[in-house]
Design a protein around this nucleic acid. Sequence first.
DNA 1: TATCTCCATGAAATCGTTTACATTTGTCGG
DNA 2: CCGACAAATGTAAACGATTTCATGGAGATA
Lengths: 331, 331
Amino acid sequence: MASMNEVAKRAGVSIATVSRVLNNSESVNEETRMKILKAIKELKYQPSRVAKRLRSKSGAGNLLGVLIPDIQNPFYVDVLRGIEDVAYQNNYVIIMCNFSQDEKKEAMYLEILESEAIDGLIAAPAHEEDQRVKKIVRNGLPVVCVDRGLKGMDVDVVWVNNQESAYQAVSFMIEKGYKRIAHIGGLPTIPSSRLRLEGYRNAMQDHGLDLDENLIIQGDSSYASGMQVTEKLLSMTNPPDALFTGNNLITLGALEVINGRKLQIPKDIAVLGFDDMNWSNALNPPLTAVRQPAYEIGKRAGELLIQRIKDPKRPCIQMTLNSELKIRHSC
Amino acid sequence: MASMNEVAKRAGVSIATVSRVLNNSESVNEETRMKILKAIKELKYQPSRVAKRLRSKSGAGNLLGVLIPDIQNPFYVDVLRGIEDVAYQNNYVIIMCNFSQDEKKEAMYLEILESEAIDGLIAAPAHEEDQRVKKIVRNGLPVVCVDRGLKGMDVDVVWVNNQESAYQAVSFMIEKGYKRIAHIGGLPTIPSSRLRLEGYRNAMQDHGLDLDENLIIQGDSSYASGMQVTEKLLSMTNPPDALFTGNNLITLGALEVINGRKLQIPKDIAVLGFDDMNWSNALNPPLTAVRQPAYEIGKRAGELLIQRIKDPKRPCIQMTLNSELKIRHSC
DNA sequence: TATCTCCATGAAATCGTTTACATTTGTCGG
DNA sequence: CCGACAAATGTAAACGATTTCATGGAGATA
């Protein structure tokens, strides 16, 4: 790979001048500019992003970190796509770190990201008290949180109104006539799990249904937990007539168990999932679900981050996007 | 962020010595080592991966590039997970580049990856003649291809035997008694599309079924194309009795249309998909599919890449993993 | 005692940029 | 005709590491 030095030599100028035409800053004679551009082309010169990043500490590296809890969850894949599109358009590139809900892994990735001198970070922290992410914010790195906030910390966040969305979804189920609605929640440490549960509780109470605590079970947000909990619920002597599942993966796990038992949806048991998938219509029956605008969450977060990199002083924004109840045929 | 210089100052030594204890190379007095470690701890020093990468050109940067055609395809997500696990274990970090089957985007990402001085690349090239990836291989960067090879190029590859897998799958369908088996293929430019189609053709011929060319339609590997083509097939005056779909996304698109038409699987139309998903059991009926070991493909590719980085001269390996026909209830 | 080795360490070059400062040249106002 | 200023370019320091070479002192050997 040709370096700036070689370009300079070939064009018979100093590297400073080459740098100037590359960043088209200051004035440089048209004739020399041409000479330099020619040399660049001939040598197929490409600036080293590494050297650039090392020299000009922040904002010029065009490198973003993305820290997500679970890449197997289609929700985060869509968020990632949104981020990636914005990044691409702005000539940024992404270091993707998937910490699989493992805080050790998260810690290591954050260290690495710092030492990679990223210009900014989009993160879904492990939980609201996440000290590692907090520290990074305090260090002054531009950060945007998605899906989950950071308690007591002024930081950009993009998310949906989890509690209200859950409330509406459960209300819908109640209006449909379901009485024993179970909720399979996600990891209790994750803020959105708590909020969704809260929404569920409020809806039940506001509609005068009594809350059977046996119908509320929190798992670990995984497919496996979706299966286990559903199994447990369906084995009750007085099983639920409807399921409100706490995320994508849980929903799918639940469906596997329901299919396995040859139960009819929604006749035997109705299902309403939090989180929609692009292929929810491929399920049979098509899934009724709360659709978080995952792609847009990612896109907005990317935009906010790039804004903040350009203007670190801009006041923080909490952006709440609307989720949408996709009524299909499972409930 | 503290730099090596500050550590050196604090410990009262030169940066060379600090570097030595960090890489525990050469001999350094136990006492000074202690002093330095203390200083490192006190300053919370973390080496800059950027500086490291700039200085020691290759292999020390602990940075891998991953270039994939479509992050919405669950297959690649699983591959990515495999890569990521190996990378994590070996203290590498990943720059994820999703080019969305767009060759312009692919070109840009490859340029960036080069200029990020990555230590190695795992790529699923756009097609077998991919000049951009070929150039990178020629430049001497360690590269491992997944899912797709590079024609006339000696390079590590990890994939499955697409043709044979398709052959077996279609044979299975034939043995089940299906006669008019349609095939919805992926982008003709992608090698695996061609191989799967080939396997389909051979199976049909070898079993003495006549090949109705109207039942072979190639799309662009997307969900949307899966829908369109299925729509077309089901609208024929003499529609197929079974569908062999060319990838994940196509399968899901097909299922959406089939559900929409209230057709029963497999009674009205059977479906066998190429590519399995972790949640195939959540589909109703559970999908019969050719399961590529996606996670393992990623893992193996990661291992091969790290090996090659350590030993660039090692002869190339073409690693063909076994796919498995997961017989469930859609066919 | 002179020389040789070995251990421990430091000095300085290097990677490929950016950028503050210095230098050269030409032009223009007074 | 001289000083001031602007335009165009060059010089060199910096970013934060690695690495080669040099050096000083302690033991060992002859």
